[in-house]
Structure formats: C-alpha cells, structure tokens
Design a protein around this nucleic acid. Structure first.
Length: 284
DNA sequence: CGCCAGGATTGAA
DNA sequence: TTCAATCATGGC
C-alpha cells in the first residue's frame, strides 16, 4: 500500500464531485468522508484534507499524474465561476455547492457508462457498471487482504462477448448498443483518440454515429472525458431546471434550450450545467 | 399496476 | 427543421 499523499488544491468538494453523476465507480466508505474507487488499474482512496485531497492506493505507489488529471486539480475553479452569468438561479446553484468540479475521465469508460445511462437512474447505472466490471474487468487487489476489485473492461474485451452476456449485467436494450460501440472501437472504425482533434460540433457528430448515442450522451462524453467545456448535456433534470428557472411561462423545446444555454452560460457552460444539475437534484 | 429515470430513433408535419 | 410517438428496462 502506498503512503498517503496530499494533492494540493483549493475549492474542491470531493464528495459532491464524485457523487454528482459524472463517474459511476466511486463509493463512500463507511458513510464518512473517505471515498474509494477505481481509476484505470489503481484502487484508490480519496479523503478531503486541509489544503487539498489526500490520496492513497492499494498495491503500487499512486500514479499522481493520472490522479491529478482525473481530479483536474490544476483547474482554477474561481476563474471559471467568474464566467457564469450573474443571475439568481446561477447564484443559487453555485451557493448550494461551491467546490463542485468536473472530472476528466477516460473516453471509453465514459462513453460506455453513458450508453448504459439511457433512461436509468444514477444508482442503477452504478450497479450496471459494477456488474460489468466484476464480470469482465481485470481483477485488482484492494486495501484489505483478499479484497478484489476490477478494472473497467476495455472495448476489445466486450467486443468478444455476445449480447446475452451483456444483458446479464442488467443493461437490457442498451446491450446491443454497448456491444456495437465496443466492436466499432476495437476494430478501429471508431477512433476515440482522434475525436480529441475535432472541434466541438464535429466531435459531437462523430460520437453520434454510434447507435444509442444521441446528443445528450455525446455531450456528456465530450464534457466529462474530452473537456469540451461548451458541451451542455440536457437531461430531464436540466430541462426541468432551465424550464422552471429561465422559461417559466412558455414551454421551450430541447433545441431551443440548448441554443439558449450556448449563449447564456458562456465558455464554461458545461460547468454551469453541472451546478444546475446538482442544485436541482439536492432540492428534491 | 403506474411511474420514472443524466434517451434514442423514427416518421410525420 | 422540428415535433410527437414509439421503444424499452428495472426499481420502487
């Protein structure tokens, strides 16, 4: 087990960030402030600490560069918050959770997770991702003796499976979509690394060529894995938020809401979206 | 049963 | 283009 190390960062609400429906492999341990999750092949424990986030890994020493990248500790949150519109809903959303962050995830894991997210609740997405990893991921040693965790299975692994194997992970009609995506990527017909070089609109279109990937899921992957900060995923919560907070009278279409978001929330609209999403969910 | 969830797709207007 | 209808699954 590696020694605990402090990653220096301020304005970081670790719990809210790990639990905000971006990533699905992190769980609160023993109901406390300690979080445990899988990042690549690392089994990681994260704890809020004075001056930053304390990290500890099971087995080998932590890959600090990978952890910093995932947590985006170099991002100056205050500078981003300054770009938000100065209106009442946005002030309330930020006040509800200052320190909420965006993570930077692996594109494949993020894409696969959000293909599985279609019309599912977050708790159920976690369960499907856990089942999929347990069955088809590589075993990883945990902190306790004999404890086993699993990496997220790569596209090559899933591409070799049958639809029935995936359905057993409770993903239902999403199974053929995930299988197809895995096959497209494993075969090289879809190059997730090449998506980085595209601009936002082209990258979105590219991802949407995959079956089961519409605009919402594409935006989630573009925001959470590629760092396109203008991506603005509109799900049922965000639609409700925009509708109630910004269009209380007339009903606005999804297209209109997205256009409004693109101009109203600025260059980091995706961050604003995450604050509104979290705000709406905690109001409930 | 009834409803909903970090939707996508299809076919009509 | 923009819609409304349809599809589809598991949990509560």
């Amino acid at each position: 087990m590696g020694a605990p190390i402090l990653l220096r960062v301020s304005d970081y609400d670790l719990g809210a960030t790990l639990d905000s429906g971006q990533a699905f492999r992190w769980r609160r341990v023993a109901g406390g402030e300690l979080w445990e999750g899988i990042l690549g092949r690392q089994v990681v424990r994260l704890t809020p600490a004075a001056g930053g986030v304390q990290v500890q890994t099971a087995g080998a020493e932590p890959d600090l560069a990978a952890l910093r990248h995932f947590l985006q500790t170099e991002v100056e949150l205050a500078a981003i918050l300054k770009t938000f519109p100065d209106d009442e809903p946005m002030r309330a959303a930020v006040a509800a959770c200052p320190g909420l962050r965006l993570l930077r995830q692996d594109p494949w894991e993020c894409l696969a997770s959000f293909i599985l997210s279609a019309t599912k609740q977050i708790v159920q997405i976690r369960q499907i991702v856990a089942l999929l990893s347990e069955r088809y991921g590589e075993p990883l040693a945990g902190f306790a003796a004999g404890e086993r965790h699993h990496s997220f299975p790569g596209p090559e692994r899933l591409a070799a499976l049958g639809e029935a194997d995936l359905r057993e992970c409770k993903m239902g009609f999403r199974a053929p979509n995930l299988l197809n995506a895995a096959q497209e990527i494993a075969s090289g017909r879809m190059d997730l690394e090449a998506v980085r070089a595209l601009d936002y609109a082209a990258a979105r279109e590219r991802l949407m060529t995959l079956r089961g990937v519409g605009g919402k899921i594409a935006d989630c992957v573009l925001l959470f894995a590629y760092g396109f900060d203008t991506a603005f995923p509109v799900d049922v919560w965000i639609e409700r938020a925009l509708q109630e907070l910004y269009f209380p009278k007339r009903r606005a279409s999804d297209k209109r809401l997205r256009r409004f978001a693109a101009t109203h929330f600025g260059p980091h609209a995706g961050y604003a979206q995450q604050y509104l999403f979290h705000y709406m969910r905690t109001l409930r």
